[in-house]
């Protein structure tokens, strides 16, 4: 697994521990005490490092290549998930996936950005950067969900909508804008999770929801820290400062009233245990869907969503 720079001291300690274990097994020496000591140190170090990550380091975790992706989470969370393809206008965009599923007694429409875990997968998935047809597929599935009164769950994980010639020709801006407007009016509840990277309008395009949750090491930002650094700070190396200024971490997003809660990840990040991560998300989905099931007036879902976004903004009057 790819190791991030700040993880190296931890990895080194764990390497040492396994070496000592080998030694004690082979040589018959009793190193138990030493091993226990180092293990304790490693735990403390781990806690220490992960409790004071800089926003840019959190961002690195959110982009970790081994982080669980939407399709894998679908398999781990839902009882049955069946992928559905295509926007019925141009093509099937592999950077946004969706499908129907069940979760205990609930029916669910799941939609999410899809990244890959290696170069080959990422090229196929366009690094999770959708084209307009991805947003149009998402909208088609959301409208279907509305038609059959199925709650919607979305997983957000994208660096942003794809900046390309064809994307512009086919109306990237229009596709996202339409989703923002149409999601507002959905008469079914929408629950969204930022499972990794919440990159700007490309993230929001499937994120106009009744409830929004941040995974602990997920980030949500109007622009990437790198992009912000090169524009505002005139220096790409300033992304550390930009990341800090933009307030992109889960806690920031909750504090600003944008997200409703944080889903805890395994120590070190979701990539250390997909199953634990999926279980944590599943719990939240179940809790919310149980609560929403009691609502009989579907217009209340629309009104709740409208009021939520309507009050976002800080200004003086």
């Amino acid at each position: 697994m790819k190791k991030l720079d700040f993880e190296k001291p931890i990895v080194e300690l764990y390497d040492k521990i396994s070496q000592l274990k080998e030694l004690s097994k082979e040589g018959g020496m009793s190193l138990e005490d030493d091993i226990a000591k180092i293990e304790k140190r490693a735990e403390l170090l781990k806690k220490d490092i992960y409790s004071q990550l800089s926003p840019l380091q959190v961002m690195q975790i959110s982009r970790h290549p081994n982080r669980p992706d939407t399709l894998s989470l679908c398999q781990l969370i839902f009882d049955h998930f069946m992928e559905l393809h295509g926007d019925r206008a141009f093509k099937d965009d592999p950077a946004i996936v969706g499908g129907i599923a069940t979760l205990k007694k609930h029916r669910v429409m799941v939609i999410g950005h899809q990244k890959g875990h290696d170069t080959k997968e990422n090229i196929y998935r366009n690094f999770g950067m959708p084209n307009p047809e991805g947003y149009r597929k998402a909208l088609r599935l959301m409208k279907m969900a509305e038609k059959f009164s199925i709650p919607i769950v979305t997983f957000i994980d994208t660096p942003g909508a794809f900046p390309g010639i064809e994307a512009e020709e086919r109306g990237q801006a229009e596709a996202i804008a339409r989703n923002l407007r149409e999601m507002t009016g959905l008469t079914v509840p929408v629950v969204s999770f930022v499972i990794g990277e919440g990159g700007s309008g490309g993230a929001l395009g499937i994120g106009v929801s009744n409830k929004l949750y941040m995974l602990e090491y997920g980030v949500y930002s109007v622009i990437s820290p790198e992009g912000c650094a090169s524009i505002l700070f005139r220096d790409a190396k300033e992304s550390e400062r930009a990341a800090k200024s933009l307030k992109i971490t889960a806690k920031d997003i909750v504090d600003l009233g944008i997200a409703d809660g944080i889903v805890k990840e395994p120590v070190g990040g979701a990539h250390y245990s997909w199953q634990d991560t999926a279980d944590a998300i599943k719990k939240v989905i179940q809790k919310d869907l149980n609560a929403y099931k009691k609502t009989t007036d579907s217009e209340l879902f629309v009104e709740e969503r409208y009021q939520k976004f309507r009050q976002m903004g800080i200004f003086s009057e």
Binding site: T184, L204, I223, L246, I258, Y306, M312, I314
Partner: peptide, 17 residues
């Protein structure tokens, strides 16, 4: 950009209206 995520949310707010 100087208003961070809050500026992004204005996209949703205006479209909702």
């Amino acid at each position: 950009m100087q208003e961070g995520i809050m500026s992004l949310m204005q996209m949703a707010k205006t479209s909702a209206a």
